[in-house]
Design a protein around this nucleic acid. Sequence first.
DNA 1: TTGACGCATTCCCATATCGGCATACGATAG
DNA 2: CTATCGTATGCCGATATGGGAATGCGTCAA
Lengths: 113, 113
Amino acid sequence: MARAATTSDVFNAIAEPQRREILALLRAGERPVTELAHELGMSQPGASKHLRVLREVGLVRVREAGKQRLYGLDARGLRPVHEWAGGFERFWNESFDRLDTYVQDLKQARQED
Amino acid sequence: MARAATTSDVFNAIAEPQRREILALLRAGERPVTELAHELGMSQPGASKHLRVLREVGLVRVREAGKQRLYGLDARGLRPVHEWAGGFERFWNESFDRLDTYVQDLKQARQED
DNA sequence: TTGACGCATTCCCATATCGGCATACGATAG
DNA sequence: CTATCGTATGCCGATATGGGAATGCGTCAA
């Protein structure tokens, strides 16, 4: 078995830096492929490929506009990512200087719930 | 070129479902490798490999405890992920029923710059 | 219709997985 | 010292990847 297909889920899709950059750019609005490619310093086929991945996981949508295809952001798929990471918030706020005692306390706290 | 090494950054590390499961388990406290492997239904070498990746991106740390090695969570590295995704919050809160018009407005706004 | 333009797809390569299996390694028990 | 337990690592195979180059294809302009 190899790595799961990047097109299989959002976490894989956003694992690639250039795809995150595309998403960031699209926050400012729709853009045609060539413009994205140029702004990110990648080839047109390269941009198309990344956009395809983003499309397949639903982070991006296309709209036909004559010769061009305008890609737009659909960030709803990022919400699960945000929530997943947020589930660890209380942990990164803790002091890790004494991880051992920290974990002990946590166990204790959980038992008191 | 292939995909960047998964050990290169946190986004890649958490792209793998089993690694996310490991992190989830570790929220309850430190655990030795074998226990993790058993709880996740994976082989010991498998667990060790995933733990290595998590270690290399700093999401996990080890503590020697006699024969065992206790792995503990260090969620600080997940904060950037949370914040990155959070940067899109206002977008997933938008109504996408009228995405077209929404984007139109946005595009228009860009042209007026 | 023909040509130019914008984009997607395909093929190829070098690489990085992930999983299984065997094995090496460090620490402890006897 | 030696056997054993708990882990880490090495090697293999099957697969997915990202990038480059070439190409297919639909749309619009002349």
